[in-house]
Design a binder for these strands. Structure first.
Lengths: 245, 245
DNA sequence: GAGTGGTCTAGACCACGAG
DNA sequence: TCGTGGTCTAGACCACTCA
């Protein structure tokens, strides 16, 4: 037994795949689709909801339903040796970075693994492909670790530039822990990524420590679920190479 | 302007928080709630959908809507040295395992990193805390690697038992790659985890290789977003210990 | 078989967007 | 202002669970 809204969703998928509905174009109105399929408004909306969740359709209240551009997924990786190459080569992204000094509040304290009140520098990255937001990243470095000179507009996504500069100034990252959660975005993340609050978010909290266990860098990474994936290699290739060399 | 179904959702949240609806108990029927709130069946269902997505309510077709226990998140980890201890100690889970032989089809082929048509044994895990599904895991082992004896009911979650038995039979896993995605569940996953198709899913595709790069084990892990997290340590502690020792 | 949730309808009205 | 999507209704019928 197949639900009517699933049938309609499949039919619309077909039309997108076949090019009947072209990328970026507006679909017929929900009322028209309801007439076409001999279904009610609500059933058509259920079908469109499926396509929206799949990332194929973007709904614009008061305007219409549009075929989304099919982006490749942006890959976040724990493979520090090749992250730069990956991101720079595979996907061309534009960035904006804003930095400021903060004292971590209690809610951030737990996520960054530092005591509340610790003075840190926050680097806030917004990454775009064209005009479409692809990543919202906040990178934190304790003020007593080192001073960095992060350019306003960066080549590297996801705050990798911070780690690179840390390495250049002699700070060694001995261990990183990535905590990955799938959830809905909060208001700030939804606004920054221009997705609605019912969308899916890939949230990665990364904490990096030196040999003594001191936190030298932490990052809160928010990626739209349908545009991102995270890849973790165990053991990481760079360490395999160090062991071999 | 607050939507009626949001108001109803808040009211129901309040009743759960205040203990008016106790953990594990059945809510009034949707028809009764509709009468109570002076709203229609569909509006009440929208409100219940919100609570379901938030992990507060479990819907059982033909039976009723139930208050979920406020569980801690189940942690998936790449830290193989302590995974067993973690899972067994932190969270008591019940399991069902079903195994069968399959030939991988083209859609699975890409996710498992093996050629289409490869004969493999599939171990299908369903993990429960009480009667509430917590994980839906499919573990695959090529038939030519080894024969395993997986008990029907297992102590270890997430298919760790397969990896343990592989190790016991002399198969060494030299490298694993975990691909993590946040998305909505497909129909099979939604049904197995008893969540709706608009819920958030943490999907982990893991591929394990031996020294020669041959795939010796692969797993498709589906975890309800609100019940799970994944933690990746780089480098993994066991390798750090090997390097030190 | 009684009671539950799941799907669908036909129509109403509201909120938003663009001309 | 008009066409669009967003919400809601009242009621129908189907599918599932359980006594």
């Amino acid at each position: 037994m197949t639900a009517r809204h699933d049938e309609i969703a499949s039919a619309l998928r077909e039309r997108v795949a076949s090019g009947a509905y072209k990328t970026g174009s507006k679909l017929p109105s929900e009322a028209q689709l309801a007439r076409q399929f001999g279904a009610s408004h609500m059933t058509v909306r259920a079908a469109l909801g499926i396509l929206q969740n799949a990332g194929l359709v973007e709904k614009r209240h008061g305007s219409g339903n549009y075929v989304r551009r099919p982006y490749e997924r942006l890959t976040y990786s724990n493979d520090r040796a090749t992250t730069d190459g990956h991101a720079a080569a595979e996907i061309a992204l534009d960035f904006e970075v804003v930095s400021r000094r903060i004292f971590v509040k209690s809610d951030l304290s737990a996520r960054l693994h530092v005591p509340a009140g610790t003075p840190m520098t926050e680097y806030r990255y917004q990454s775009y492909r064209g005009t479409s937001p692809q990543a919202f990243v906040r990178v934190y470095v304790p003020c007593d670790v080192t001073d960095l000179d992060i350019p306003y507009s960066s080549r590297l996504p996801l705050g990798d530039e911070v780690r690179q500069q840390l390495a250049d100034s002699g700070v060694v990252i001995a261990r990183s822990v990535d905590l990955v959660i799938a959830r809905h975005p909060d208001a700030e993340e939804a606004s920054a990524l221009r997705i609605n609050t019912q969308a899916v978010l890939l949230s990665i909290d990364r904490v990096s420590m030196d040999e003594t266990g001191r936190v030298v860098e932490a990052a809160l990474i928010a990626l739209p679920g349908h545009l991102a994936r995270a890849e973790f290699t165990t053991p990481a290739p760079e360490h395999a190479m160090e062991a071999a060399g």
